[in-house]
Design a protein around this nucleic acid. Structure first.
Lengths: 176, 176, 176, 176
DNA sequence: AATGAATGAGCGTTCATTCAT
DNA sequence: GATGAATGAACGCTCATTCAT
């Protein structure tokens, strides 16, 4: 692959993430091409179907997210805040973007791999926060992800959404 | 032939609720007709645009939901369980169906009325539960609805989803 | 045929003439039924296809027109004005209505008969006007009908249309 | 591939002129595509709505007509024949085609421009013919256009139509 | 490798026509 | 005889996908 091809691929992916985050998979491939500044043919050369394009955009998003989270706090006392910040980030820092994941019913191949990378990162944060006594010990990664996924699609007034997130984080705190 | 028409209308609405619950408004009117076992023309005779069809399905769903909830518990000590049961019902008793509501950006007319009917019912349950000391006093109807809406779209293993709901209900309990 | 059936038939025909005069054959059968105050089924009971309905409306119109024209002037000196008045009537007295005729490419059966009735009436007027020296002797019925048909569909400002009709009538006058 | 596209655009336009001339705007876009030998998508790529297609066909027709007429006669004595030839050309040289213009209730943008170009050309011919004493001085452009439009839709035997045109041109001559 | 024109299945919608009531 | 609900072919239009340049 020539370097200009690689560059085009990246611009297409970035455009795809934008478009699908805004409109879900109702976003059109033509719009992706337009925003990437390439011809429609180029998009299909790199991603043979629309589904492949969506999946690649999801993988990109998940991978970037996982990388962000892997920067771990040095001190144990930061584990609680770190977990909560990450939770908030995933839920509202990328409002519609995380919803990308749900566009795909079946996760396989690269998507599964990227998702699992993200899971590891979150598991890490969760475990540390639990060890620090900042998150209830019986919380599992699966339910945390269910909550993130659900809240990432929450719509409504920002205030109400923020308070809803607070409620959930409260629910994840140890009973005093 | 009035009764046939009414019956068909109902079958179309039921089919619409199914289809749009599964696929959002990407679901096609033809698919609705197919599942209802009627011709496409019949769908449009009853609902002159696709939007009208979606709205009618939402109204139907919200109305049924509100009716269910209006059966109030007699004793104050049942207020907490009643609220939690209703919460669970709205979240998982109507799996993806509540998501119908979010299909419509602007609620007006009948949709607004039905939505507000449901809000009243839930507000009622919420207030009673708060008075009984079973739900934290600072919880508002808006954030409760954000949580319901979010969780109603949650995907994943049933166990994880159930536990996620528990976490949220815990978050809604008064701090001990 | 019962008398109420006959009455319905007439109301349908009158409605059809109105609707098709306004919108050409883009006018819908349903609209005809609505204006006639009957069900759509009744329209189709009387006229088995839309084409039959249009044709019947044309026949009705042509017949009425012919009857109007058959009231002949007593005095020879009225022959010129009578012809011109009839010409103007056919062209602008029923602006879009005469255009009905042209909706049907092939005139057969009843339509042909009604058309021929009208032709007789106009022929009569024409001959008398020619005998009175008010219309050029070499004008034929065919060309008169071509002119009527053409002008009946003329669009544009009323002043310009009126003057155009004057020009044509001038062209039909004997050269002085 | 630019030239292919241009060629296809032209074929589509030519087909559209044919179809709409025959059937008015009841002619279907699919029929246009079929006659042009292209897919339906190609028609819509070049003309984003049916209205745009109809307008483009009208513009094309009017522009070609105006160009034909702009070849002016050198000598004053040719002004009468030139006007009459142009009149005949517009009426019968483009049988039902001129009727295209009337398909559009509101002329704006390019259609207005093309129509006004044609008007100028005809105005020019008219003025010259009037100056040469070959057309009555009180005839205005508007009524000339009413006559052209009307006659361009005339149906019937060719002989009768031709004679009808003669009558009109006679009406436009100065009274001797 | 990139382009964008062409394709055609599919969608929302309309309407002439049929038929159970 | 009258009704109007049901039907489905056809229309204008969109968009994922293909392919000639």
């Amino acid at each position: 692959m020539r370097s200009d091809a690689r560059a085009n691929r990246d611009r297409v992916l970035a455009a795809a993430e934008e478009v699908f985050a805004e409109s879900g998979d109702a976003g059109s491939t033509e719009e992706v091409a337009r925003r990437a500044g390439v011809g429609i043919g180029t998009v299909f050369r790199h991603f043979p179907t629309k589904r492949a394009l969506v999946e690649a955009a999801v993988v990109r998003h998940l991978t970037q997210l996982a990388q962000t989270l892997h920067v771990q706090p040095a001190r144990a006392e930061d584990a609680g805040p770190a977990f909560r910040e990450a939770f908030r980030e995933m839920v509202s820092g990328a409002p519609a973007k995380l919803a990308l994941v749900a566009l795909l019913e079946q996760h396989t191949g690269e998507v599964a791999a990227a998702a699992s990378g993200l899971r590891e990162a979150v598991q890490d944060l969760l475990t540390r926060a639990q060890q620090a006594g900042e998150v209830r010990a019986d919380a599992t990664l699966d339910e945390v992800f269910v909550l993130i996924n659900a809240l990432s699609r929450a719509t409504g007034e920002q205030t109400a959404v923020d308070r809803a997130v607070d409620v959930v984080l409260d629910g994840l705190s140890p009973r005093s």
